[in-house]
């Protein structure tokens, strides 16, 4: 309760201040700022979205990596698409969303950021019929065309702020992993 109220206070304050960037200021305050709702989320020291080094230091981003602050997904892909190490499956979905300009409040607009997002929110961008086709060759079964039908809760597999998991595998033993693909929208 405390957290909810405080975060709402900061959200309004931040919106009031009206700072926006690639990653908006309220976003940063809520997710990476003074009152992180995700306890293990690193705190950003400066409010610029593509600033990988600010959190990840040299452990993830090599020291000689070009400065990333201000970069968006197309900038990452310009180098990472073919080259190793690829970014594919390395970034959590929260990051790929952010770098595509989808900020926290785009999904968490009405509710406290700690709450779960309804699949309807995902489906405003990701259409079930497209996904069904995208994964039709996945073996041994197309995860988007299962006995549960095409409209399952996305978050059963695809976690945005945690490693994704293979929901099928609570009963099956399917070899495929849930990708965190680098997609430009």
């Amino acid at each position: 309760m405390m957290i909810q109220r405080t975060s709402e206070f900061f959200r309004r304050l931040a919106i009031g201040i009206g700072l926006a960037g690639l990653v908006s200021f309220p976003t940063l305050i809520l997710c990476h700022g003074y009152i992180s709702v995700h306890a293990d989320t690193p705190t950003l020291s400066s409010p610029s979205g593509g600033d990988c080094q600010a959190c990840h230091k040299s452990t993830m981003v090599p020291a000689d990596h070009p400065k990333t602050s201000g970069m968006a997904m197309p900038d990452c892909i310009a180098c990472h698409k073919q080259e190793t190490p690829s970014l594919g499956n390395r970034m959590p979905l929260s990051h790929t969303h952010l770098l595509n300009g989808v900020v926290c409040r785009d999904c968490h607009a009405e509710i406290d950021p700690a709450g779960y997002v309804d699949k309807g929110t995902c489906m405003t961008c990701h259409k079930p019929q497209d996904l069904l086709i995208a994964t039709r060759d996945v073996r041994p079964a197309n995860p988007h065309d299962s006995h549960y039908g095409p409209e399952l809760d996305c978050d059963l597999c695809h976690h945005v702020h945690a490693p994704s998991e293979n929901f099928c595998n609570q009963c099956h033993a399917f070899g495929f992993t849930i990708p965190s693909p680098i997609i430009i929208r």
Binding site: H147, Y148, L152, D153, L156, C171
Partner: peptide
């Protein structure tokens, strides 16, 4: 559950 259908759907 987060999916409908219980044992019936499997």
């Amino acid at each position: 559950m987060r999916v409908p259908g219980g044992n019936s759907i499997i």
